[in-house]
Design a protein around this nucleic acid. Structure first.
Lengths: 191, 191
DNA sequence: ATAATATGCTAACGCCGTTAGGCTTTTAGG
DNA sequence: CCTAAAAGCCTAACGGCGTTAGCATATTAT
């Protein structure tokens, strides 16, 4: 029957590829099966169901995002590290919007693998902020704020929510990051 | 045939109700038809297709959000207006998460009604910032930053991305808003 | 060589949005 | 008031979806 010996990894890889090229919205198991020259039902020899595929793709996405962030802050300190990290995060969201969407579609509850992966997103941010003298609780709050700014920009620009005004979005983003750094310095004084 | 004389408004209203109670993800035309004691195909006498329903629901959501924002800033100035607006926006996202999601799922491109509605979200923010002496371009940037912070918080908390640490999310949010006000004051000095 | 497992198949189920075509009730015009 | 048009709703069907059950064959391990 001319079988090709597909592995679970092959299937997940093809899924990620398809999500990136066709969009998360247009992803389907049947089309994925087509691309692998397989019938849709045969996919279930390799994966439990669609959710599992999303989970796997999401974990991949998180690891990729973490890599970019760590690269960005390597050898950098304080505001330089923060700005570089923000830039990397923004580029990831802009260059790989579909795979970025997968991360947020993940059900952060229940699943252990995802929950652990969540810390992979936080870690580089904490490292970048380490140069500031902050209390532990403050870092937790500030890390959330930083992520909100970055994600807020990416998702709203992607959704087309920034088209009302003709001013450059990159400029807005840089201003936001400078604002965050201002808050970091202010928090440092209080501590 | 015991027809009940449904109007387009009835259908849209029922759709919004169903989205809010069952979740955007679980919404379907067939179940909507069931609730109206109608067959799915009959819905097409009132609406063009599903996208149009989403558009209508989204425009409703935006008008509701605008109302909440305007109420929040009524009679308030500067930082008080900003904080109150931020609080209202947050509450809307938290209390009506499904209808909030509809707003962001809207294709901001093409459709005129949506594009116009986009300004309804911006307007209250601009009004709240009017108390600060800022250049026009600065206001455009700052409005984006404000929206990014608010939306970033809502969407990430909703997605469960803030569960890594046990510190209160409301506290993080208030800190973020105070940071934004700091940026507003700083921008005022520069102008 | 044989048993077990892995990889693939077909057929089917119950969902989904959407279209075509027909029937009946309501509304509008002369 | 009668008739023509429109509005409201129907059944039947299409092609898509994820998923399951049951079966065949190829690969691997004993």
């Amino acid at each position: 029957m001319a079988r090709q010996g597909l592995t679970r990894t092959d299937v997940i890889g093809a899924a990620i590829e398809m999500i990136e090229s066709e969009g998360l919205h247009n992803f389907s198991l049947r089309e994925l099966a087509n691309r692998l020259h397989i019938k849709a039902a045969s996919l279930y020899s390799h994966i439990r169901n669609m959710d599992e595929l999303y989970t796997e793709a999401g974990c991949y996405a998180i690891s990729e995002l973490k890599k970019m962030q760590l690269d960005a802050i390597a050898g950098k300190q304080r505001s330089e590290a923060i700005e570089s990290l923000a830039d990397a995060y923004y580029r990831f969201g802009k260059e790989r919007p579909e795979i970025y969407k997968v991360i947020l579609s993940l059900p952060m509850v229940k699943n252990d693998a995802i929950h652990r992966a969540g810390f992979d997103i936080v870690e580089p941010i904490m490292t970048a902020m380490a140069g500031y003298h902050l209390a532990g609780e403050q870092m937790m709050h500030l890390q959330r704020i930083f992520r909100s700014i970055m994600h807020g920009f990416i998702s709203q620009e992607e959704a087309g929510c920034f088209r009302q005004f003709p001013v450059d979005v990159g400029e807005s983003y840089r201003m936001a990051v400078r604002g965050f750094i201002l808050l970091l310095e202010e928090s440092e004084k209080e501590a």
